[in-house]
Design a protein around this nucleic acid. Structure first.
Lengths: 284, 284
DNA sequence: ACTATTTGTGTAATTAAATTACACAAATGT
DNA sequence: ACATTTGTGTAATTTAATTACACAAATAGT
């Protein structure tokens, strides 16, 4: 796959002239991708066909194709890595680290997301009488965001931050109601209790939480979010970003499932908001 | 840097024929890097020079150079391109599109973030008597999240969703107070008014909003978030994710600046939360 | 509304690049 | 030492990319 590794690997299987080509490329791969076969041949002190043969030997179709592969190998420079913020970090340092950590976390959750579960959740949501979103702390924010999104759809939806309100809501829930519980760790006691109460009252409980957590075990359906080893002191919780995107996905699936009549409504809401804004054409 | 983003960005600045080329490439970037200028021209139904001109417009030296850049863009795992959600999309389709759109948006804002401004904002925050976070709709969620974060630091911080409360708070603000206003478009009337009120009362106003917007013009300091072309019906607002990360960065900068005594406090808060959770060792 | 100018687009010619064919040289094996 | 394989370069050929130019469309200015 990776051409640079490929070169490295077959280095001693090459002939003398081809070896010269390999050395020239390895010495400065960045400049190699911008040279023509002629300049590279000159640089390696071999003939042009030799360079071409070398490329073929590296399992590429020819010199241009080889350059393409080489470019791709070089591009995989910075895979989003979780580097922790340190006390001595400059603004640039910690800003970059936080962005990278967030990107890494999102990328990981993208790879982990189970679309079958998503689909099942959308199923349940579209058939529900009422939807409730509950969470605490950072997850309360996510619940609030979800409320915001689903509220536009003109469906019965609610979200409370207050524990008592949450409990009352769950106690009053019944068959056809959906309760979505959001928790990063899945260990928040009150949320686990909410799940139990809601289930007792025949509501469907969906958890956006860590797999195999106490909360997950009480849910009818779990959209699992990966939980990183241990969040250190400075690092902000990237997890809530992942939760938000899952809300986005659910909301989108919901809209698509509900059909066209529904989307007219969405458009109407968007239009309605416009009046509270400065017109784009008028300013300046 | 990234050619795919470059294409996406200049999409509406292209002529009709060049747009066809852009569409053809975006439709299948992987196959594009393996085609010659002739096949690509045929695919896009334009002439070869048009393809070449398109490449030049994307700040590359020519077609081969363009392919090189494209290859590099593709190599970074996945092409984070904003492909719009369509009615016919499957679960996998829209899930992927949303994740990619979010990742793309985050990646872009990472490149655009101005650390000097961040530093300035952290300066102001650390020296403030009180911090207020205000926003509406999706941005209210971000304000809430910010409250959540800064509250842990044991500094005077507040956030209201209610417009009247926000106004009263700004009216009562004074020198040394910081008001952080969050708005995606920067055109929300009430927020612009808040900025004016707060400024009149000598508070420092920081905006997390679009550059050159009415709101931005009223702020003492603007942390600018890019504003994408036009958000379509299905696509969720990836912008709030970017805003959240900026909050993360500010909070981190704030902690680092405040020194070690401060961080003990953070640890204490983290410890305090633990009691509301199921112990990791006890369950199962 | 018509003309001038700019801007965009394709055809054909040109140039540059890469590949192939072939010949010779070096190395290896008999 | 000779035959055969393998490697390498020169020159020819092919292919791809670019440039030059002409025409068409759109825009702006009488």
């Amino acid at each position: 796959m990776n051409v640079l590794e490929q070169i490295q690997l077959n280095l001693n299987k090459l002939s003398r002239s081809e070896r010269k080509v390999a050395d020239a490329i390895l010495a400065s791969p960045k400049s190699a991708i911008h040279s023509s076969i002629a300049t590279l041949a000159k640089l390696a002190d071999v003939s042009e066909p030799t360079v071409n043969r070398f490329c073929r030997r590296m399992d590429t179709k020819g010199f241009p194709d080889f350059k393409l592969h080489l470019a791709q190998s070089l591009a995989n420079g910075t895979p989003y890595v979780n580097r922790h913020v340190e006390e001595s970090d400059s603004v640039e340092d910690y800003t970059n680290k936080i962005y990278e950590a967030t990107l890494a976390s999102l990328d990981r959750s993208r790879q982990m997301v189970d679309t079958a579960t998503i689909n099942r959740a959308v199923d349940i949501l579209t058939q529900s009488k009422q939807i409730s979103f509950f969470g605490h702390g950072a997850s309360a924010v996510v619940a609030q965001d979800a409320l915001n999104k689903f509220f536009r759809f003109n469906v019965p939806v609610q979200s409370f931050q207050d524990d008592l309100m949450q409990r009352m809501s769950c106690i009053n829930s019944s068959d056809g109601d959906v309760v979505i519980l959001i928790s990063h760790t899945g260990r928040t006691k009150s949320l686990v209790e909410l799940a139990m109460i809601a289930k007792e009252n025949d509501a469907t409980v969906i958890g956006i939480t860590a797999t195999d957590s106490p909360l997950a075990n009480e849910c009818n359906l779990v959209i699992s979010t990966e939980i990183p080893e241990d969040t250190d002191l400075y690092m902000p919780m990237a997890s809530r970003i992942g939760q938000l995107v899952i809300i986005d996905v659910l909301a989108t699936g919901f809209t698509l499932r509900r059909g066209s009549k529904f989307r007219d409504n969405l458009q109407k809401v968007k239009q309605g908001i416009k009046e509270s804004r400065f017109n784009k054409l008028l300013d300046k």
